[in-house]
Design a protein around this nucleic acid. Structure first.
Length: 1024
RNA sequence: GGGCGGUUAGCUCAGCGGUAGAGCACUACGUUGACAUCGUAGUGGCCACUGGUUCGAUCCCAGUACCGCCCACCA
């Protein structure tokens, strides 16, 4: 059955995709030669519930090109595939899904266990989507090894790393100010915060000095001249977040600030709060900004926190987990009473400070932004806002009034937002787990500094260093449910008094549970034990803890726990613990830390985790460290740097030798793709329209190192056409019997015809260039080379040369050469365009193997024949010139002309004769003779020859004159340039010899050409 | 505020010491033994600006302008 005119991607891709999967072509070690070097890549695991976007398509195309290239070379390859559980993202998706149906319970209503069941359900339902889409892209991963960060051995590996790092003191827990996402009600890391400039305001408040004190406030200009002198009873502070003033612990001024020197150490009244706070000095306030005095709210601002720590000020937390003003704890009067005692020096603890709710009753339970309005209104009402005089013209009377208005500055402020939730992040003082990154950053820096791991492009290396050299502790705990739960258990501090019942009856489950929950506040300071399995630390608890007054019935505890989160947690932990001892009764009050780990903590272990660590698996030994990581530059901190730190910390080895970072894929205009802009290009739609090969080739061609990647569908269409071009070259071959009896040949046929020798050499050149390009990750150069070779050499010239050769004595050799050249084209293109090439491979000739497992060629340089190259250059240049000249003097395309050689060297004559058929056909020449140019001919100079095309009556003499003149002008310019250089004495002495020689040869050739043209012009002048 | 990039044909980008290339777009012609998802021939560039180094600079260095991106606590 003859070939169709075009390749049908829709049909073929589905069929070939199936074929590859069924044959497990991407299995670890597939097509490997014994003892071959290994080549391994870890896929950046996409979110399990995600779908393929253009970034994935780009990224995975590059990985697949490398993997296929190495696999065809017989290397032992592994492309490890898998997905990430993506804590926040997935939890968000599932919550959103639940919310779609109003009859569903919310996450909180259904509780942790039930919600996690829903997440797993969702994972099972949608988790295969992206894997499928990767397959449609043509990715040749080892699908049987698909990993998932929440399945198989991976969670065990994660937990083991946590335990190991905990025991080495690399992980610690502490109450710190962290970025808190009020929507997800979890801590997030610095990296998950996006600072965005928004329109904000700055308010200025007066804090009145205690005991009616006053001072002389003096402002001076730069020269020291007094510009303002007044008696004040207040200090002015500025804030963009008025609601936080409720938690102020002090007002700070710079020690050198003379304006406030008289009142440093004095107390001021905190408005609305019935509290006094001190004026302290600290280096932090900038005397030149605002009033120079800063309110210090240790629990809600990172700078203030640092000041508070230095000054030993208590940090009063004002908000709850959803960023509403706190409504818990004792009444305000009581809390503030205790705060005053603490201020007066009463001993306290961090834990106690945290329990004190210093939000006055009025604001309790308010949303933080509502509270802001209320605080501002109330301070204004008290007359404690700094005010300015405003002039107002009465519209009726026209008279001017001066009024005092609160001073509120409109101001652009940088506000932190959660990168997932998009809500304003609240600095929050909470208990969290941290990786002590300072302790593990060294090896990660060294590995890149000494070149064991290379980062490309180099700018990525700079970014990497900059971040790691200024690394902050990494907050790894998340108050989420979907993730790896922290393997730390706590014993409860029980006060035996609490278990003494008023009556004579023994306490029942409900009462005991109530006591546990209420008395302990689930205090995590109490007897933490970290272990992969609770059983391994059970003895420690038994030695340490007092048992419960009497064993509780486990089932009953769970039953009575109701939906109180802490109670459920406790009950569940009790059950977990005791089930390993006694399936029905709970004996010891132990609970497990409910937090889960940051997703990046687990994905940071992706390289070793997917290879079976901590077991010393054969895969770990063979494929680790991996060869290269290909990923977006946007996750260099999130993932790349952390993998470096973690792998080095855990197994003392770099995770990968090379890191290839690429930019973000943008639309054709360079805009970020976003749903709201409506410019999102769906790779699956591109595949449907143009085929996966076209998308892949475009991706490769775009992949220059560094910069933004602009995706243009016109370009994709262009590469689809490129596939069609190859297809049709094969179709041409088929029509000419090239494939009949053809079987794959690793070595090219011995060719005698120059055109055949030449194209064999061109193939060898293309192979070398592609190899060199891929070795240095220049996917764009490789793609460009292949495009130029297949289209520009094979199709534009060789196929045309073959047409006359098929009719001549070299027909057999030419068929063999064409078959070989097209085979090589399919092989070389296969990593880039796997579908069309695999399909062509199967329909052309007899094949022992699928193309995906066909040997990548090694072609000796001796295949490049310089004589053949020179001769074909002569032929193609001549053809080009004849075509060009004909077009310029408007010879009708269909008209064949004669060609006369007016001068010809022996070499040129031989070259011409050997290729006469080709030249005649492609240049549309009827007859060729040697002799004198007749009147009315056009003249064509060539190396070693001068040709003329007689066109009596067909051309205008004037037109030919102007054509020659134009060429002469161009030549004259070049000659002038070359002369200029060669006549410069410094050029000859300073420039390298070969450059000088080249210039001389160049000049000679130009002069040669010039004299030929000049002769032609003279002849025309005689005529005309 | 700090850091890192970019500025080359109408558009998107390569090149990076020897006076410029590709694809697309554009113009003219064209059903020549595969291909109109095509062919042939063309048009189009003081390589952002100013200095410096050099025999020679689009390329190296310094500065300027504009454009991106990342990081950052000015209340």
């Amino acid at each position: 059955m003859p070939m169709e005119k075009t390749f049908n991607p829709t049909e073929a891709e589905a069929r070939i995709c199936r074929l590859w999967i069924d044959h497990k072509v991407g299995a670890a070690g597939a097509n490997a030669r014994p003892g071959a070097e290994t080549f391994s890549i870890m896929i950046p695991p996409p979110n399990v519930t995600g779908s393929l976007h253009m970034g994935h398509a780009f990224n995975n195309t590059l990985q697949d090109i490398l993997i296929r290239w190495h696999r065809m070379q017989g290397h032992d390859t592994l492309w490890q595939v898998g997905t990430d559980h993506a804590g926040i993202a997935t939890q968000m998706v599932v919550e959103r899904e639940l919310a779609k149906n109003k009859t569903n319970m919310t996450r909180r209503e259904m509780g942790r266990e039930a919600f996690l069941a829903k997440v797993w359900q969702w994972k099972d339902q949608s988790g295969g989507t992206i894997i499928n889409q990767l397959q449609r892209l043509g990715a040749s991963c080892d699908w049987d090894r698909e990993a998932f960060t929440m399945s198989g051995n991976f969670p065990d590996a994660v937990i083991k790393v946590f335990v190991d790092m905990y025991q080495k003191g690399l992980i610690y827990r502490g109450k710190r100010l962290v970025n808190w996402d009020p929507h997800f009600e979890t801590a997030i890391s610095d990296l998950e915060v996006e600072n965005i400039e928004v329109a904000g305001h700055m308010w200025h408040f007066k804090y009145i000095l205690a005991d009616g004190e006053t001072y002389e406030y003096v402002e001076k200009d730069a020269e020291g001249a007094v510009t303002l002198r007044e008696k004040r009873n207040y200090i002015s502070i500025a804030t963009t977040r008025p609601e936080t003033m409720l938690g102020d612990g002090a007002v700070a001024v710079h020690p050198s600030d003379t304006r406030y020197a008289p009142i440093v150490g004095r107390m001021v009244h905190l408005p609305l709060c019935d509290r006094l706070i001190p004026i302290i000095t600290d280096e932090y306030p900038d005397p030149n900004f605002g009033s120079g005095a800063v309110k210090i709210t240790g629990a809600h601002d990172f700078n203030d926190y640092a000041v508070a720590k230095r000054a030993n000020l208590p940090c009063y937390r004002l908000m709850d987990t959803s960023a509403h003003m706190r409504a818990d704890g004792a009444p305000y009067g009581q809390a503030v009473q205790r705060a005053r005692e603490i201020a007066a020096g009463s001993p306290t603890t961090e834990a106690e400070v945290d329990t004190l709710n210093l939000v006055p009753e009025k604001y309790r339970g308010m949303d933080r932004f509502k509270a802001r309005e209320a605080v501002v209104a109330d301070i204004n009402a008290l007359g404690l806002s700094v005010s300015t005089l405003q002039s107002e013209i009465d519209p009726e009377t026209g008279s001017e009034h001066l009024t005092r208005e609160p001073f509120v500055e409109a101001k652009k402020i940088m506000q932190p937002f959660g990168d997932r939730s998009k809500v304003v992040i609240e600095p929050m003082l909470t208990d969290q787990w941290f990786v002590d990154t300072a302790k593990i950053v060294g090896p990660a820096l060294d590995a890149v500094r000494d070149g064991r791991t290379r980062i490309m492009p180099e700018s990525g290396e700079k970014t990497y260093f900059h971040w790691l050299e200024n690394i902050e502790p990494w907050c790894i705990s998340r108050q989420l449910w979907w993730g790896h739960q922290i393997p730390v258990w706590y014993g409860l501090n029980l006060d035996p008094e609490d278990f003494i019942d008023d009556g004579d009856d023994a306490l029942d489950e409900v009462e005991i549970l109530t006591v546990l929950v209420n008395s302990s506040h689930l205090d995590r300071d109490a007897r933490p034990h970290c272990a992969a399995e609770l059983s391994t630390v059970a003895e420690k608890f038994r030695d340490d803890l007092a048992p419960l007054p009497h064993p509780l019935n486990a089932a009953r505890v769970v039953e009575v726990a109701d939906r109180h989160a802490a109670a459920i947690l406790l009950a569940k932990s009790l059950a977990d613990y005791n089930l390993s001892q006694d399936p029905t009764h709970l004996t010891y009050p132990i609970w497990r830390d409910p937090d889960v780990l940051d997703t990046w903590f687990s994905s940071g272990l992706w390289p070793i985790g997917t290879l079976g660590w901590p077991d010393t698996t054969p895969e770990l030994q063979r494929y680790f460290p991996t060869s290269v990581l290909i990923t977006g530059a946007d996750i260099i901190f999130f993932w790349v740097a952390r993998m470096m730190m973690m792998q080095l910390a855990v197994v003392g080895e770099i995770p990968f030798h090379d890191v290839y970072l690429h930019g973000l894929v943008r639309d054709a205009k360079g805009k970020k793709m976003s749903k709201s802009l409506g410019n999102v290009v769906d790779p699956l739609e591109i595949i449907d329209t143009y085929g996966a090969d076209a998308l892949r080739f475009s991706n490769a061609a775009m992949a220059s190192l560094g910069g933004v990647l602009k995706l243009d569908t016109q370009r994709i269409a262009g590469y689809r056409n490129f596939g069609t071009k190859l297809w049709n070259a094969c179709r041409f071959a088929e029509m000419n019997g090239v494939w009949e009896g053809h079987a794959t040949q690793t070595t090219p046929p011995t060719a005698t015809a120059t055109a055949n020798q030449w194209i064999i050499g061109e193939t060898a050149k293309a192979l070398t260039e592609v190899n060199d390009a891929l070795k240095t990750y220049r996917f764009d150069t490789a793609a460009d080379t292949l495009y130029k070779f297949v289209w520009g050499k094979v199709c534009d010239w060789y196929v045309e040369f073959a047409k006359p050769l098929f009719d001549g004595p070299d027909a057999t050799e030419t068929r063999q050469t064409m078959a070989w050249v097209l085979d090589q084209s399919m092989i070389l293109l296969h990593p880039f365009m796997p579908f069309i090439t695999e399909d062509l491979w199967s329909t052309t000739g007899t094949r022992r193997k699928l193309l995906v497992h066909t040997d990548w060629p090694t072609l000796p340089e001796t295949l490049i024949n310089p004589d053949a190259d020179r001769e074909m250059a002569f032929v193609t240049t001549l053809i080009d010139e004849i075509r060009s000249a004909r077009a310029q003097v408007h010879v009708p395309v269909g008209l064949k002309t004669d060609l006369i050689a007016t001068a010809l060297t022996e070499d040129a004559r031989a070259a011409f004769q050997r290729n006469e058929a080709l030249i005649k056909r492609l240049a549309r020449i009827e007859t060729f003779t040697e002799g004198l140019a007749p009147k009315g001919a056009i003249t064509l100079p060539a190396p070693g020859a001068t040709f003329a095309i007689p066109l009596q009556g067909l051309i205008d003499i004037a037109e030919e004159k102007s054509r020659l003149q134009k060429t002469m002008d161009k030549l004259a310019k070049e000659i002038a340039g070359l002369n200029g250089r060669l006549n410069n004495p410094n050029f000859a002495t300073s420039a390298p010899e070969d450059v000088v020689d080249e210039a001389k040869a160049n000049l000679q050739a130009r002069l040669d050409e010039q004299s030929k043209l000049q002769a032609a012009l003279t002849r025309l002048a005689d005529l005309g």
